[in-house]
Simulated scan of single mutants.
Amino acid sequence: MSPLISAGELIAELGAPGLVLVDCRHDLADPTAGRRAYAGGHLPGAVPLHLDEDLSGAKTGRNGRHPLPDPLALARSLSNAGIGDGSRVVAYDGQGGMYAARLWWLLRWLGFDAVQVLDGGVAAFVAAGGTLDTAVTQPVPAVFTPKPRPGWTVDAATVLDNLDRQDFTVIDARAPGRYAGEGETLDPVAGHIPGALNRFFQLNLQPDGRFKPAEQLRAEWQALLAGLDPHDTVQQCGSGVTACHNLLALEAAGLKGSRLYPGSWSEWCSDPARPVAVGTN
């Protein structure tokens, strides 16, 4: 199954048995924005899941801004949203997939592969002739069995140890300015993990908010990797959210095997003992 589904394909499948649409719209600066967007109009039958409340775990001040949720707690949220072992999920947002990709990755991390992201999100759906609904969906709870996949993540200690070992290459999904240590607005320390490469997640998209064709993504990513096997890379960002967008783009390009550093920069910079690099190298 492709990790992406077009608006036209989804419209043709609306109402299919087992299909669950999940509204992942969010705004880091306004945590209530997603709920307002859902109330104002969502895909027919869609259920909302909140980045902070459903798709992230508890923060300690040292584990990043969006730590991974406990698998059992996430499974409960998914079950309450009507997602069961036999479901098929399409996640969407209004931000080019930056939040929907988080749910896509989380589901796959829990061993669930029947999940796609709506390419282009709400705007593409409406442009393709889809009609939004304002009725609040009342999902029927389902049974979701989490089966976390080992080896899909690395922790801060592993990243720190890798600075000397160089067993893998870290790729930072943040904007070039934040990567360089300029204009940081979300985290208390500016800069990046030493040795990390930069691939701004927005580069995966076309101007209309849809993902670039697979061939173009493959060429761009292969140019960045410069011969690296995707299995020897780890994706990170500010808090482990837009790094999932890069993982989705790699999957769409047929370049599988990269891992996620969930704590990302917000966790890394919480410990002053960890080294920080600035600039573009």
Rank of each mutant, 00 (worst) to 15 (best):
D229V: 00
D187A: 00
P194F: 00
L118A: 08
A100V: 01
P262C: 05
W152M: 15
E251M: 09
G257L: 03
A81E: 04
L107P: 12
D155I: 07
V276Q: 05
A75M: 08
R76K: 14
T242A: 05
G121D: 05
F201D: 14
G209E: 01
A157W: 11
Q95Y: 10
V122D: 02
T134D: 09
G238E: 09
N281F: 11
P194A: 03
M98V: 15
G195T: 08
I5R: 06
P148L: 03
G64T: 06
Q138E: 15
P44Y: 01
H192R: 01
C269A: 06
G151T: 06
Q138R: 14
L228Q: 09
L4D: 10
H42G: 10
D70G: 13
W104P: 12
G61Y: 01
D85G: 07
V189Y: 01
V278W: 01
T32L: 14
D208M: 00
L51F: 02
E182Y: 03
A29N: 15
V115M: 06
L51N: 06
T233N: 08
G40V: 09
C269S: 10
S266H: 01
P230H: 03
Q95C: 15
T134P: 02
S264T: 06
H66K: 03
G151D: 03
S2Q: 15
G18S: 10
G40P: 10
L19K: 07
L4V: 03
A114K: 13
Q235A: 15
D167M: 07
L197V: 04
S56K: 06
P69N: 02
K256A: 14
R88W: 02
G40R: 06
A46I: 05
A16W: 05
L197P: 08
